[in-house]
Design a protein around this nucleic acid. Structure first.
Lengths: 468, 468
DNA sequence: GCATTTGTTCCTTTACATTTG
DNA sequence: TCAAATGTAAAGGAACAAATG
């Protein structure tokens, strides 16, 4: 029975006792989900402590634990022992980022495309593929993990980034996101934990939610995730994996230097984590950036799933990525590939292969690099101060902002001004922070002129958007 | 403390008490998984009852419940209230079916391909696509759910099967299996139950396991799933969905007649299930088979996810399927598409579209139908008696066998004889049965002559494979 | 620095439903 | 027909761990 009085300290959430049906915990979880998705409980709201709410509802406190857990696995709330339970920053909305649904008058500085101006080169390669004597063999079920010459071309391509692997330890999949889905399905289970940067790839956050995998946010500095912070979490929690983009993290554009990679690798090895290394930006880094060494896969080949997509470097529409793994992961990953994809289109893989073998892929990369350089140069003209560290050729920039309205309103405000930008809350893997940033995509406009117009709008309206 | 004596009635599984660590249930689940995957516990073995094992290990019986549940969600075991807990038929091996890993001397009557002899027509269409003025636009991130003209062609294609839908209620995905993965991820949660035929599509069983979705086997007859059996299960359990292939079930080749569809639809409506309708064989049925009416989607548009792959009908290597859904499912499905695929290759979709709009897709279908007719005709020459009912143009046949050795040994036996066939155990959604069948693929050989050789080997060796 | 607050984990208790004989 | 066997589901209890003040 209730023993406290709640009149003096009203609880942030008072579910209707009479609305509860058996099973109590599910009924309660549904009520909570309803109130969050309908905006009655704003992001960041502290929910009543388990024992207090249990007292109020006259149930055992572990019933509240269960109800809260259902919502936590859906990503609606998060809990911190000692502090309380809070509504997630992105609880009420999907943060999935895609090219869909944006008005044509709007300049897109949100979604990160890949300087699509290079696609005429792809068209030429596609036409050359049509002359192949074995063209028809690209249209059947054979070679579900990739034809041997596709795989060899992939290994060849990745060797420039420092990857040494055998044809037996790789497969062709349909893009980096597809590779992440496959990896999570193959090697993780619902309830497993993966360590990530505090700000990380939004679609990785979303797919983790969908697979009921918990993310453990690890603080970082200008050189990336902090090894001792990772170690702390591993000592406290049962962490199964870690997700990193060492060549150029998304969204922060942080590049992890070699010594930091080694420190992180030591922790990852010590705690036997599975490292998911998304190296989609390798082509902007390996052989380009001074002192760049090698992917972390080479440091931890037995514990790493290395993902190398060609979407950003070669062609975004063909959906081809390479996934590299050790023998221990092989069977599980290939099974997941069969169950999610059956196979990746051999035609798409053939065109990518043609581009690689003919050297045109390198020409594309060179052109994209120059476009990236120009775009970054343009960006620094608008935002000259050293607002950030990060990769000099990044396809996006990460800027701190003083505006402190909520993320949705911020994004809407800029949409109304004619540009789409993404607020840092979209990329939050855990609790809200005081800091606010914007991620500005540089690779998605049709021209530098359009990018310039977009950046102008951004600069003119930054800082004007502050609540009380 | 233990109160019974176990010497007289030895338990089928006696885990080592001292090997248990805390948490007990996880430790126990791991032991069980190890003993099953390493063959110490054969498929079909009855495990000790929860209370008996609890007594033996001196723990509470719900601790056993939890340990068993972990293994059940992994598909290793299944439990029947009142009867006991049993090792699953396919616990120790992956039943995922793919084109991978088969020696080249072997005639493949296992994996169901799609009479790949029609692929030269696809090659011609691919070349024509290269002449399109908008070719380059097929290589970017745009239109992640499909370009409008791709979708319109898809609706056009499906209209021949009786589908009426709006362009807003469909998307292009990368094949039927991909569509199933997307549907399960979008609309179901771990622990949910989906009703299926006792024998069902093996890769659906596998992906359900991976997503921790429980399958509820429903008995059927020559006209498909029995409505009253479905109703019974819905009354007893919380069933969330049902998976059907009404045009031609895999592996049984059963075609559901119109009145049965209506009866099933009534139950599905009454219990508000989500129907997953895999209509990959529509092209062999709609407009071909007498008295064929329409897909179940048209009976239950608000509750059905309709999946129409072009892999079997047009081209297997291009990985294009259409997925049709109501408004209520739309947001979730599109989010799942973004998180698993980002998008499907627009080039692949364009080639399929070209084939459809030029009428060549119909020519391919006509050729495949004729090949299917020849193959079925050949089959009946070898197996003349009415061994089965089922679709007359099916790409595979389902035959009862008297041989009663276990599934793996049976398949190995035939592999040694030079043909690959699949035993019915691969397709079991639940408990083992006394009956044994083989699924014989007719659409995977390079020629009718090769099929004939394969069927000859099959016939010569059937029935010779019986233990004791 | 330690008591308090708060969340986590897992085992136990209780009630119940189905199958079998 | 009904009791026994067997599995299922939810909620309670107890011990623990982290963060707070």
């Amino acid at each position: 029975m209730p023993i406290n009085s709640f009149t003096d300290y009203p609880m942030s959430w008072k579910p209707d006792r009479d609305a509860l049906k058996r099973p109590l915990y599910l009924s309660l979880a549904l009520l909570l989900e309803y109130d969050i998705t309908n905006g009655f409980l704003a992001p960041g709201t502290k929910l009543p402590p388990q024992r207090e709410l249990a007292d109020f509802l006259d149930v055992n406190f572990t019933t509240i634990t269960r109800a809260y857990k259902v919502c936590e696995l859906k990503g609606l709330i998060y809990a911190v022992t000692g502090s309380g339970t809070f509504v997630s920053p992105n609880a009420a909305r999907s943060i999935t980022i895609s090219k869909d649904k944006i008005s044509s008058e709007c300049i897109d500085l949100g979604f990160v495309a890949s300087f699509e101006q290079t696609n005429p080169i792809v068209a030429v390669a596609a036409k050359r593929v049509m002359e192949k004597s074995y063209l028809e063999q690209l249209f059947d079920y054979n070679d579900p993990t990739g034809k041997p010459h596709h795989k060899i071309a992939g290994l060849n391509w990745m060797s420039a980034f420092g990857i040494q692997a055998d044809i037996e330890n790789m497969a062709i999949v349909s893009g980096a996101q597809n590779a992440l889905a496959i990896t999570l399905l193959a090697l993780f289970e619902p309830g497993n934990r993966i360590a990530v940067d505090i700000y990380t790839y939004a679609n990785f956050i979303e797919i983790s939610k969908m697979f009921r995998i918990k993310l453990v946010p690890i603080p970082g500095d200008e050189y990336g995730m902090l090894p001792n912070e990772l170690e702390n979490q591993c000592l406290q929690l049962d962490v199964h994996g870690v997700f990193l983009m060492p060549s150029c993290s998304n969204p922060t554009s942080v590049m992890i230097p070699e010594n930091r990679k080694k420190e992180l690798a030591a922790i990852i090895r010590k705690h036997n984590l599975i490292l998911i290394e998304d190296d989609i930006h390798a082509f902007l880094t390996a052989g380009i950036i001074e002192n760049y060494g090698q992917p972390m896969f080479q440091l931890l080949p037995e514990q790493t799933v290395y993902i190398c997509s060609t979407s950003k470097s070669i062609c975004s529409g063909l959906r081809v990525a390479y996934i590299v793994f050790c023998d221990a992961f092989k069977e599980k990953i290939i099974k997941a590939i069969f169950n999610i994809n059956v196979k990746t289109s051999s035609l798409d893989a053939e065109i990518i292969t043609e581009l690689i073998l003919s050297g045109k892929a390198n020409a594309i990369v060179e052109e994209k690099r120059q476009l990236a350089q120009s775009a970054n140069h343009l960006f620094t003209e608008f935002f000259p101060r050293p607002l950030h560290t990060g990769h000099p050729l990044s396809f996006y920039r990460w800027i701190p902002i003083s505006d402190n309205v909520n993320a949705s309103r911020m994004e809407s405000y800029f949409l109304n001004k004619g540009i789409r930008v993404f607020h840092s809350d979209r990329f939050l893997s855990g609790a809200s922070t005081k800091d606010n940033f914007l991620r500005i995509a540089l690779a998605s406009t049709n021209s530098m002129e359009e990018l310039q117009r977009g950046l102008k709008i951004l600069k003119e309206n930054l800082g004007k958007n502050t609540d009380v």
